[in-house]
Amino acid sequence: MSHSVADRPLLALLLRLLGIGGFAAMAVLIKLADDTGVHLLEIIFWRQFVSVPIVLAWAAMAGGMHLIRTDRPKAHAVRAGYGIVGMVLNFGGVILLPLAEATALSFSAPIFAVILSIVLLKETVGSWRWSAVIAGFAGILVIAQPGGNDIPLFGAMVALGGAFMIALISIQIRDLGRTDHPVAIVFWFAVATVIVALPALFFVHEPLTAQQWLLLLGIGITGTWGQVLITLALRYGTVSSVIVMDYSNLIWATLLGWIVFSTVPPVTTWLGAPLVIGAGLLITWRERVLSRQRAAIVQGAGGT
């Protein structure tokens, strides 16, 4: 079978960049919806509800409805449970913090992924990745400034909780990806979220204005756009080759935060963010080196 479809690195980078732009636009719309009084649970419900028909259309164009079939409903249920908690924390971080700070703290996900790989996967972590973890947490402390006044500590903790969930979910998605198509993973998460969040709407829903409906529709469209494009990027490039584009989100967040909300990140964010981003890039580079070494060992063993 030809693997030429995966050999388009520039297209992969462009798709990832546009996908991250979609998530940045969604974050702006989430803050605007919250400012108008829309409840967080309602935002989450409509974010996923709007994505269901879009993902079904994606499945139809990608090869047919059989792509959403799964033999692992329990694994999808666990992924959905973690995903819902992750959405609450990540959306909460966006609501509670300025966009740039929420985005910078979300970059700590690779740091948590290293720790989870030790606890859950029993991996051995060497000095390179431990150094990245230490540098990354130093950057988090600079941004969050425990005891400082620039950003609320509770908001920082919520955003860090969201980053932890991203790391935990990434391990699950990696496992689900061994057996299920990306369309199925996105679809069943959306369906599960809609089912879980629907009863909550009876307690939090209030009549919405036309502006609020447009904001919720925009959240669903931009969020799904981001999800689809970053998934498609992995058809044409590896995670390690496109992950650098994820850090463009800080540029999007800073620019949009300035244009829409007239907020400019304090000096501490500019000092701490490079440490967190550098840690994430170092971890990604080291993972790539180790995966190549493991592949070489396997290939060498197969040739003996």
Rank of each mutant, 00 (worst) to 15 (best):
I20R: 10
S51G: 13
S51H: 03
Q145C: 03
V186Y: 07
L96S: 04
G300S: 08
P146K: 12
P53Q: 11
F91L: 08
I283C: 07
S4I: 06
W46D: 04
V186W: 04
V242P: 08
T70E: 00
V158W: 09
S4P: 00
Q211R: 14
I166C: 01
F189A: 10
A192G: 00
T193K: 02
F91D: 06
I30P: 05
I259G: 03
V125L: 00
W58F: 13
W188M: 09
N249H: 12
L250E: 00
S248F: 15
A60K: 13
A301V: 14
L217S: 04
W130F: 12
A24R: 11
G148T: 05
V55S: 00
G257R: 05
L14R: 11
V52Q: 09
I173T: 12
A57W: 13
A109P: 07
G218C: 08
T179I: 07
A102M: 01
P266L: 03
V183G: 08
E206V: 12
A104Y: 05
G92E: 08
G136S: 09
L10T: 14
T36I: 01
A59V: 01
I118W: 07
G257I: 01
V88H: 05
L256E: 04
R178I: 14
D7H: 15
P73D: 02
L234V: 07
T231V: 02
F45S: 09
L32N: 05
T124Y: 09
Q172M: 15
I115Y: 10
V242Y: 01
V5G: 08
A190Y: 06
L168T: 06
A59E: 10
T254F: 02
K31F: 04
M61S: 15
G223T: 00
R69E: 09
G226W: 04
I84W: 08
P110I: 06
A6P: 03
T224Q: 05
A159H: 06
L89F: 15
L97M: 13
E123M: 01
Q212K: 06
S262W: 06
V194R: 01
I151L: 09
M65Q: 13
L89W: 10
S51A: 15
V85T: 15
Y247Q: 03
L97R: 14
V125E: 06
Q293W: 14
P266V: 01
R72V: 07
L99F: 12
W270K: 12
R129A: 11
G21F: 04
